[in-house]
Nucleic acid binder design. Structure first.
Length: 197
DNA sequence: AGGCAGATCTTCT
DNA sequence: GAAGATCTGCCTA
């Protein structure tokens, strides 16, 4: 299996959101190598997307990484408690990113359980949400700006497995006016690890 | 099966 | 000072 090169990430955020489905997200930490399949994503494309943190080219400490060229990790804290992992897309100064909303764990289940520390012992509760998967995979703001092309702590591998893609509205962006109804959420049909519906 | 409160804190106005 | 790309446990039915 092949690690993606820069060119894979240097495309628009919607195309990348679709193309990341089914690919393998790899996290190396504590001497372990955790492999997950990406099941659900959302595209955010500044500056015109009102749901995007970089709407109207808003460039701040937080959104800075979105303006970098594709292939970096954008990790931010949400609701004071949870981290969310995004994959930066497109070229330099095109603030676009793909939110990873859900993944399917393929190994190291006990490690993920321990990180999550919840009552449920169901496998599907481990990583079926953006905050959940970050906690399970030990992804924090230390990885903000991380280079997915050259790094070995977090990266993405190709996978040729086939599946059907469902398009849907993005989640929890009611403030985004006409952009809240864009079908920029994508997930793999019939996969049990979807975050909602 | 669905609704709700609470946890918790960075970011930007 | 308010809001937010969320999640969990507890409650009712």
């Amino acid at each position: 299996m092949v690690k993606f090169d820069k060119a894979f990430y240097m495309r628009d955020g919607i195309t990348l959101a679709k193309d990341l489905l089914g690919k393998l997200l790899v996290r190396e930490v504590n001497g372990k190598r955790i492999v997950c399949r990406i099941i659900e994503t959302e595209g955010y494309i500044g500056p015109e997307d009102k749901a995007c943190h970089a709407y109207n080219n808003r460039r701040t400490n937080r959104t800075e990484v979105m303006f970098w060229e594709g292939g970096h990790a954008y990790v931010y804290l949400i609701y004071g408690m949870y981290n969310c992992l995004n994959i930066v897309a497109n070229k330099n100064n095109k603030p676009e990113a793909v939110l990873i909303r859900a993944v399917e764990p393929l190994n190291e289940f006990e490690f993920l359980m321990k990180n999550r520390n919840i009552k449920s012992n169901k496998l599907k509760d481990l990583t079926n949400g953006p905050g959940k998967l970050c906690k399970a995979l030990n992804i924090t703001k230390e990885l903000n700006g991380y280079d997915l092309v050259n790094g070995n702590e977090l990266y993405i591998l190709d996978c040729k497995k086939k599946f059907e893609i469902i398009k849907a509205k993005r989640i929890n962006i009611d403030y985004a006016e006409e952009y809240k109804d864009k079908l920029w959420r994508f997930y793999i049909k019939n996969n049990p690890f979807i975050s909602k519906k």
